[in-house]
């Protein structure tokens, strides 16, 4: 049995909206094994993105514990969380979220500033990451000069440049056409199968979920398909 790298223990999270508490995760228990490609599906407001934010420590649970690689991230200080994110998780967003004033190569090299690597090593590593996503010929292009699919592949290159254990993908194909979406999904599947990355992907797209090794359905903050929870 593979190692469990992510575990939610009785996690509850609510947001306040107009004075009312909106519960997005309701005593959630779930786990993800190392090397798994997990798809999270469900209607808007079902808590999918919140799960990603909690795994990466971008948000904190109201109660319960979020264990990632043996660490309860909900108990870490701000600085420890930053360090944890830099070392263990990486995000791929629906809106790509590249820094517009930097080139593809510079965007990929950005998180490497957090490492003790030399400038030359950083360049080598970012070029290697761009090669993996098939964009070696676009490294001097700025985001505006790339197509949506290319932007997302640069974002994936940035995510893998740090060699994280876990990739958190929030609707990575939401803004892409079918062909581009398939290229990105194939890339993610390859990262999971060839490079052993644990991938948690939020998606509304049934076809996208087919690339995953497992799919969890959520509704109103709870897992609705008990057979795969």
């Amino acid at each position: 049995m593979a190692e469990v790298v992510i575990r939610f223990e009785d996690v509850t999270k609510a947001y306040r909206k107009g004075g009312e508490a909106l519960v997005v995760l309701d005593h959630l228990d779930m786990s993800v094994e190392a090397g798994e490609f997990l798809a999270l599906m469900g209607p808007s407001g079902s808590g999918k993105s919140t799960i990603l934010n909690l795994i990466g420590g971008l948000d904190l649970p109201d109660s319960g514990a979020v264990w990632v690689q043996g660490t309860d991230v909900s108990r870490l200080s701000a600085d420890a969380l930053s360090s944890f994110r830099a070392n263990h998780v990486a995000y791929v967003f629906q809106a790509f979220n590249l820094i517009p004033v930097l080139t593809a190569e510079e965007n990929v090299a950005l998180p490497l500033l957090l490492t003790p690597l030399t400038k030359a090593q950083r360049r080598e590593q970012s070029r290697f990451a761009l090669e993996i996503v098939g964009l070696s010929d676009r490294m001097d292009h700025k985001p505006k000069q790339l197509s949506g699919g290319q932007e997302q592949r640069v974002a994936i290159a940035r995510a893998i440049a740090m060699d994280p254990t876990i990739l958190l993908c929030d609707e990575p194909t939401g803004d892409l056409d079918r062909d581009s979406a398939d290229q990105v999904l194939e890339l993610l599947a390859r990262l999971s199968s060839e490079f052993g990355k644990t991938i948690v992907m939020v998606t509304h797209d049934l076809q996208a979920s087919e690339y995953a090794s497992r799919t969890v359905h959520l509704d109103k903050g709870v897992v609705v398909d008990p057979t795969i929870a």
């Binding site: 701000a78 600085d79 994110r85 830099a86 979220n97 820094i99 950005l110 998180p111 957090l114």
Partner: peptide, 14 residues
């Protein structure tokens, strides 16, 4: 605002 959020999500401290 978004760029700063991206930096933080990449692990850059405050």
């Amino acid at each position: 605002v978004r760029s700063m959020g991206i930096l933080k999500s990449l692990g850059f401290p405050n």
